[in-house]
Each structure stands twice: as structure tokens, then as C-alpha cells.
């Protein structure tokens, strides 16, 4: 069966014809829309590497059927920076060495953006750790990631206040 799906991806409207209903959002992004920044680590919602924002909320794109998301607004790691200007979360990940191999990083960053948007963790490292626990890291970059999220959260908070 053929399905027509319209998505807004990183601000750009994408009309997609799916010849196969099985396509997940993750595989749509990676294999059909050439947006390979989002990573597949487990394909089962167990690692968080595929985290993207759908309608502003962080979800696992590997467990979302593309057909079911018709009309959704999707933001991936490729859509985060404004031109050459990195998002504060991205910049903080570099400054705090919040990654090693970099494979889980797009998911960690998108999850951190989602976490900060949710505005529940604040500057409590323990709440940040809990809120980021859906994103596994095998290299062991956890300390840098939490430092980076804390710093980005503070920066964005200052920006909001100012």
C-alpha cells in the first residue's frame, strides 16, 4: 500500500510518498530524507540515540511509525544550529567534552533540548541525570553531559530572564 505523509522537518515541509507502511520515523529520516545525523543504536527505544523532537517533545524516532505522524513538526540535530551559530546545548557539549565517540550525541543533545523545554529539572544535577536517563552512553561521557546540560540550562534561563 502507498501512503502519503506530510511532515515539517527542521522547518521545511516534506511531502513523502511511502511505498511501505513499516517505515519508522527514524528510517524515514536516515534512509529516505538523507538526514543521517539521527542515529540508530538499538532500534527499540532502549538507548535514546534516535531522539528527535516531534511537535516540540522528545521521543524515540525508532518506535514511531512515520505514517502515524502525518502532519507533525519534526526537529532533528541538523535543525538545531542557526546557521553557523551553535545552539547553547551544542556549544556546551563541546566545552564540557560531553561526548567521546559522538554516536549517542545527537540523541543526547536533542534529549537535553527537550529536557530544558520541559522546565522540570532546573539546575538540579540529580533531576538532570534522571531526566537524561533515556539516553545511554557507552563511552562514559556522563559527567561532561550533565555539566553541559547544566550550563546550557543556565544560559537559556538567563536569556529568558533578559
Amino acid at each position: 500500500m502507498t501512503l502519503s505523509v506530510t511532515l515539517t522537518v527542521n522547518g521545511v515541509r516534506r511531502d513523502v510518498t511511502l511505498e511501505d507502511p513499516r517505515v519508522t520515523l527514524l528510517d524515514l529520516l536516515r534512509e529516505r530524507l538523507d538526514l543521517v545525523g539521527t542515529k540508530k543504536g538499538c532500534d527499540r527505544g532502549q538507548c535514546g540515540a534516535c531522539t528527535v523532537l516531534v511537535d516540540g517533545r522528545r521521543i524515540n524516532s525508532c518506535l514511531a511509525l512515520a505514517a502515524s505522524l502525518d502532519g507533525a513538526d519534526v526537529m532533528t540535530i541538523e535543525g538545531l544550529a542557526k546557521g553557523d551559530a551553535l545552539d547553547p546545548v551544542q556549544a556546551a557539549f563541546i566545552a564540557h567534552d560531553g561526548f567521546q565517540c559522538g554516536f549517542c550525541t545527537p540523541g543526547q543533545i536533542m534529549s537535553a533540548v527537550g529536557l530544558i523545554n520541559e522546565a522540570e529539572a532546573g539546575d538540579d544535577p540529580e533531576r538532570i541525570r534522571e531526566g537524561m536517563s533515556g539516553n545511554l552512553c557507552r563511552c562514559g561521557a556522563h559527567a561532561g553531559i550533565v555539566e553541559a546540560v547544566l550550563e546550557a540550562q543556565k544560559k537559556l534561563e538567563q536569556r529568558r530572564v533578559a
Partner: peptide, 9 residues
């Protein structure tokens, strides 16, 4: 339960 991503979905 689960993770923030899964709870959002």
C-alpha cells in the same frame, strides 16, 4: 517508568 522520551509518546 521507562524514559522521558517513551513517556512523552
Amino acid at each position: 517508568g521507562a524514559s522521558a522520551q517513551l513517556r512523552n509518546a
